[in-house]
């Protein structure tokens, strides 16, 4: 049915785009068109808002109490994405105070084109981008810290400031090394003790991966959605271990969904000619599940490409930039699901 979508003017896709009625191919086609037309971007935004009005006109349905309880529990162990683009710039322009322990600030997402945050391809993406441009104007206010100081586990809370308040982070009280470590190990601690801010998360993506059909924001969004799915799955499981160099590493997965994610703490940054590569390992040998990179700070995580089968082992190796067809080094970490 999609074969005739390449005919006709892409602007005609605007309605279906706003209604989420397009195939992935059509979305890519339309977003290419949005890149070229300011007028189209305005229309896309307006039609998306119009669709939201349709959504707000539906009858509200009260969720079960169990849903909220479950969510409040889940967020304690679910990392938040670092804001897009901003932190990398902030890190270059304003080094952290010397007494700051390494993972004190939110870490960079590796934005593939950090220089163009002001030209979102579409509302769909724009709505998920960080407000880097607002950073300089935002005063360094301790407000957010105070806002949560009254919470039960306030003493254990390690507040993370997002990039939009990046300038404020330098003026904000700094966490002790112990707090920072506690934050970094968020996924290993009993839920009750988990830090409010979860972890500063870096999602580093190998250039070859994002150079493909997906643009970076779509990729990040899909990664986030997949991690949410794994965490929300009734059969969600996790296994923790340490890498050869002693970094904490965790595999979370769901057999029914067939998806998994690896999270590693303070995984060292690699030279630019190398990437970390993920592998499914089973009787058929290793199968690549994507590449990623790390800043060396905070928690880096990556949802594996492809399908995980029950019993698969998952490993991480260091490979030449872009990844290899088969592992060329010993795994730095491996998990048995």
């Amino acid at each position: 049915m999609n074969k005739d979508t390449s005919t006709g003017h892409p602007e005609e896709l605007g309605g279906a785009y706003a209604l989420n009625a397009l195939s992935q191919d059509d979305i890519a086609l339309y977003e290419q068109y949005l890149d070229q037309s300011e007028q189209a971007r305005i229309e896309a935004e307006e039609l998306s808002d119009t669709a939201v009005a349709l959504g707000l006109a539906t009858i509200p349905v009260q969720p079960s109490a169990a849903l909220k309880a479950s969510l409040m529990d889940l967020i304690k162990t679910t990392p938040q994405l670092a804001p897009l683009g901003g932190p990398a710039q902030a890190a270059h322009q304003a080094p952290q105070p010397t007494d700051a322990p390494a993972p004190v600030t939110p870490l960079t997402l590796v934005p593939a084109n950090p220089a163009t945050p002001d030209a979102p391809r579409s509302r769909r993406e724009a709505r998920t981008e960080s407000s880097t441009t607002a950073t300089p104007t935002e005063p360094a206010t301790p407000g957010p810290i105070e806002a949560s100081a009254g919470e039960p586990d306030a003493g254990l809370l390690a507040e993370r400031r997002p990039a939009s308040t990046g300038t404020g982070a330098q003026a904000a009280p700094l966490r002790s090394g112990a707090e920072a470590r506690a934050q970094a190990r968020w996924f290993q601690r009993p839920a009750r003790l988990l830090v409010a801010a979860s972890a500063a998360v870096a999602l580093f993506v190998g250039g070859t991966v994002i150079g493909g059909a997906l643009n970076d924001n779509q990729f990040v969004e899909q990664q986030a959605a997949s991690l949410a799915q794994i965490n929300a799955a009734p059969d969600s499981q996790r296994a923790s271990t340490t890498t050869g160099d002693g970094q904490e590493a965790t595999l979370v997965w769901s057999n029914t969904l067939g998806i998994s994610a690896v999270l590693v703490d303070e995984l060292p940054a690699l030279p630019s000619d190398q990437d970390y590569q993920l592998w499914y390992i089973n009787g058929d040998g290793p199968l690549s599940a994507g590449t990623f990179d790390s800043t060396g700070e905070g928690t880096v995580w990556r949802v594996l490409d492809g399908t995980m089968h029950a019993g698969d082992a998952v490993g991480v190796t260091v490979e030449p930039n872009g990844g290899s067809d088969a592992p060329t080094t010993d795994p730095i970490v491996a998990f048995q699901s």
């Binding site: 669709a51 939201v52 849903l67 679910t78 938040q80 509302r123 709505r127 959605a225 949410a228 929300a232």
Partner: peptide, 29 residues
């Protein structure tokens, strides 16, 4: 699915840009 959506809200709230529209719009989209 609602649970997944709220987990995603939690994970990606750092990406929400208030200047580009209301929270309801972001969430309902």
């Amino acid at each position: 699915v609602t649970q997944e959506i709220f987990l995603e809200i939690w994970q990606t709230a750092t990406r929400y840009e208030a200047g580009r529209g209301g929270a309801s719009t972001w969430i309902m989209t």
